[in-house]
């Protein structure tokens, strides 16, 4: 067992956090920039007498995870953008079958093969379901190695409590950078997780079935309504965000993941110049932390959205704040808005 105080890359930290959260089954497939996570699990899972499989494809990996979830064990897969596209079939089935699982996406540049640099261009895919059918998945976005570990642990609890696939949306910078961290014993999730009576690790008097098929007229609609109730409950209960120097702010910058980390430095520079600006950092991207965002922006004049994409989270900000003046700075394809670019951009509007 590794120690509690560690120096790890984000990828390795997420692997260790999964193990400490009780992940029994992990399947993955090679893809940059998340390979350290897969190789970490290859080494650590057998040490813990748990299952590691290098699958023949991302599709096989997510379906193995589906099989593991059916047995009631905690299970996870990880990949990066193109691989996550392949996993969407399985994620849709997990959502339809109401099975808990954790999926980590260490985002890289797209579309297509793109490149292996940091990007945040899978925001739409992650926050709008991603696969076919009417569903959502909780999405958590870490901005440090410490938080990456914490959010992986939390995502297992959210997945088990709501019976839903849960996405940890990291980016290449978070996955690759090394930072000291203290691994928590458990997540800060405060609801009691019910026993998995539906799991196929035991048989009732009659055989149990896990499925997402509802052929009889009206049955699938009812199933979707039940799922909808669950999404609404998650929307109400699981909004997470962090704020920095927003109390007296006239201006708010909004960024998540590694981009929030970069934006923090720009906030410091602007504050030193006497500009009253703060940072709003969504931690849950779905549900989007609308309530907190609306609360802290009552007296705010201008909003600056900064992303490693050409404007995806921007749409959620616009939906949350329809009457605010919103300015957007984004770079895509591996381009990362730098501290000086952010400072220059914001100063243009102040």
């Amino acid at each position: 067992m590794a120690k509690n105080k560690l120096l790890l890359s984000g990828n390795e930290a997420m692997g260790e956090a999964a193990i400490r959260a009780g992940c029994f089954f992990y399947a993955g497939y090679p893809i940059t920039p998340q390979n350290e996570l897969t190789s970490y699990m290859a080494k650590r899972m057998p040490q813990e007498k748990r299952v590691f499989i290098q699958a023949e494809s991302e599709i096989a990996a997510i379906n193995m995870v589906l099989g593991a979830a059916v047995t009631g064990k905690r299970t996870m897969t990880s990949s990066s953008s193109p691989g996550i596209s392949l996993k969407q079939e399985g994620i849709s089935y997990l959502a339809g079958c109401q099975l808990p699982a954790v999926i980590i996406n260490v985002m890289r540049g797209g579309p297509g093969l793109g490149n292996i640099a940091s990007s945040q261009s899978d925001y739409f895919q992650a926050t709008r379901g991603g696969g076919h059918g009417d569903y959502f998945t909780p999405v958590l976005a870490p901005f440090s190695v410490q938080e990456a570990a914490e959010l992986v642990m939390l995502s297992f609890d959210i997945a088990d409590y709501y019976l839903t696939p849960t996405i940890v949306l990291a980016d290449a910078i978070i996955g690759q950078m090394c930072e000291p961290l203290v691994l928590p014993k458990k997540s800060n999730f405060n609801k009691k997780i019910p026993p998995k009576k539906w799991a196929l690790n035991w048989m009732d008097k009659e055989g149990k079935v896990v499925k997402s098929l509802f052929l009889k007229e009206g049955d699938l609609e009812k199933h979707n309504q039940r799922l909808q109730k669950k999404w609404q409950k998650i929307k109400k209960n699981e909004q997470r965000s962090s704020v920095y120097k927003t109390d007296d702010a006239k201006y708010i910058a909004i960024a998540y993941g590694s981009q929030a980390r970069i934006t923090l430095e720009a906030i410091e520079i602007l504050r030193n110049k006497g500009i009253k600006i703060g940072l709003f950092r969504p931690i849950s991207l779905w549900p989007y932390p609308v309530d907190m965002l609306q609360n802290i922006t009552t007296n705010v004049k201008k909003i600056f959205v900064i992303e490693q994409s050409l404007g995806q989270m921007l749409e959620d900000v616009r939906l949350a704040l329809p009457n605010k003046q919103i300015h957007f700075l984004g770079r895509a394809g591996g381009g990362v808005p730098t501290v000086s670019e952010i400072v220059k951009f914001i100063k243009k509007f102040i």
Partner: peptide
């Protein structure tokens, strides 16, 4: 088929049966 067999059954996406079964068997 799960409507006809009276033991535990799980659905798999088209073609993915043996990947799903792998996950099940390795856990149990």
């Amino acid at each position: 088929a799960y409507d006809y067999w009276d033991f535990n059954c799980c659905e798999a996406p088209h073609g993915r049966g043996l990947a799903v079964a792998t996950g099940i068997k390795r856990c149990l």
